[in-house]
Design a protein around this nucleic acid. Structure first.
Length: 421
DNA sequence: CGGTAACCTGGGAT
DNA sequence: AATCCCAGGTTAC
């Protein structure tokens, strides 16, 4: 989301070159292949790691590959399920809703799903969203009276028993939002004010391949078309069912994606991103042990190494890499810096840079500033601040909390114009 | 090395 | 109606 989409029409005079970043890492690697990835990343990504905090390692969610995860679920605890006949009769019209043990303050669906983290979940009710979690077709909804969130599994899959833990894993349920926000709020009064309004805005823990392909589609693109493209990719996967007239699919495997040509992606409207996807899929497939395994292994790396590794993939620059790292690789202090985050940062974190244009180097400084202010969960803080600026949240955010207020637009334009002269 | 134009496409503004 | 601008950027000069 760039400033203009938020601020709308009269920012036409803003220089658009601010989003023309050079990417660098990949190019450097081709120019200087002898330099190690670690060295490269330190050259390009000045992002600091939190000072004392060791990487978080939630006890109940080890970095197990998703595939093993599924097999695991497949094998256990089938005895606890209801008889198949009963489940079948129930599922068609009135699915069985099971409460998740998550307080309202820990998960707000409208503040989590339609906020640009994933394009695969669809709104299937006022307070209800539906999507795939691995092989499970799941709906989530808020219970009435602030009773938290419940889920249901559609389609009577035989391994439905694994759905609950898969959903909790996907929701990053081991991370206590209340606790980390408390820390942010203590040192940041603006955060504290927004936090009250945006209670329950979480960072998801998506499947890495699924996340990567989605954000590969996102570059220099708009939400509507990204969604269309992601829908196309999804339709290559196994059909899981339909809810409220919407079709849902398991995300296609790497092997399935490998079978799609650049031409096919282009014809499906991917534009130049077709090349990126085909290239990335091919590179992944060539990794020893398999691309999925390789991606998952990035969960265990330091942030800078994970980013550097992702940036070796075609079409992945620092922004996409940070999104994948934050939304799927447990890199809680990854900061996806776009022009919008830039606006927030130059106003609240780095006022001395106000007016400058966003370059890769400065984007590194922004990330650094977020991490030194918010610590090991800086990415979560950034996500909440980002959500606050979304047009869809405007209604619930008082204007004095917004980075750029209505009456400032004119001033900004004037400033830009005078700079240009 | 740091800055810039080019890249697909479709919707909305001028 | 034709044209320009823009969209959660990355790549190649």
């Amino acid at each position: 989301m760039t400033s203009s989409s938020i601020l709308s029409p009269n920012l036409l005079l803003l220089p658009c070159s601010c989003r023309h970043g050079a990417s660098s890492l990949k190019r450097l690697q081709t120019l200087a292949p002898t330099i190690s990835p670690r060295r490269l990343s330190s050259l390009l990504l000045t992002m600091k790691r939190p000072r004392r905090a060791p990487p978080p390692s939630p006890p109940s969610t080890p970095p197990t590959p998703q595939t093993i995860h599924r097999l695991h679920h497949h094998r256990r605890r089938r005895c606890c399920e209801k008889p198949v006949s009963m489940r079948q009769s129930l599922a068609a019209e009135s699915p069985e809703w099971v409460p998740l043990d998550l307080a309202e303050s820990e998960l707000s669906l409208p503040l989590t799903f339609p906020t640009g983290q994933t394009f695969r979940w669809k709104r299937t009710g006022p307070l209800r969203f539906t999507g795939a979690v691995g092989p499970h077709l799941v709906s989530l909804k808020h219970l009435e009276g602030g009773g938290g969130v419940a889920y249901c599994v559609h389609g009577n899959r035989p391994d439905g028993a694994g759905a609950r833990s898969a959903v909790l894993d996907f929701l990053n349920a081991d991370i206590r939002l209340g606790e980390i926000w408390e820390v942010f709020s203590a040192s940041d009064s603006r955060f504290a004010e927004l936090a009250r309004l945006l209670r329950g805005a979480r960072v998801l823990r998506q499947d890495p391949l699924e996340c990567l392909i989605q954000f590969l589609c996102s570059s220099n693109n708009n939400i509507a078309r990204i969604t269309k493209m992601v829908d196309f990719v999804s339709s290559l996967g196994r059909h899981l069912g339909s809810v409220k007239g919407l079709e849902f699919y398991e995300f296609p495997s790497l092997e399935r994606l490998l079978a799609v040509s650049e031409k096919e992606f282009r014809e499906a409207g991917f534009g130049y991103r077709a090349k990126y996807i085909v290239g990335t899929v091919k590179t992944l497939q060539s990794k020893p042990g398999g691309g999925v395994e390789w991606l998952t292994s990035l969960r265990g790396l330091d942030l800078q190494d994970a980013i550097a590794a992702l940036c070796t993939l075609s079409g992945v620059g620092s922004k996409v890499a940070a999104c994948v790292a934050l939304f799927s690789l447990d890199q809680h202090h990854a900061i996806p810096v776009d022009t919008h985050v830039w606006q927030i940062a130059t106003r609240y974190l780095l006022p001395e840079l106000a007016g400058a244009r966003l370059t890769p180097k400065l984007s590194g400084r922004v990330a650094e500033a977020f991490v030194s202010k918010y610590g090991k969960y800086a990415g979560w803080a950034q996500t909440m601040l980002f959500i606050a600026e979304l047009p869809s949240q405007k209604a619930i955010i008082p204007s004095h909390c917004l980075t750029i207020q209505e009456d400032e637009k004119v001033e900004r334009i004037d400033k830009e114009a005078s700079v240009a002269e």
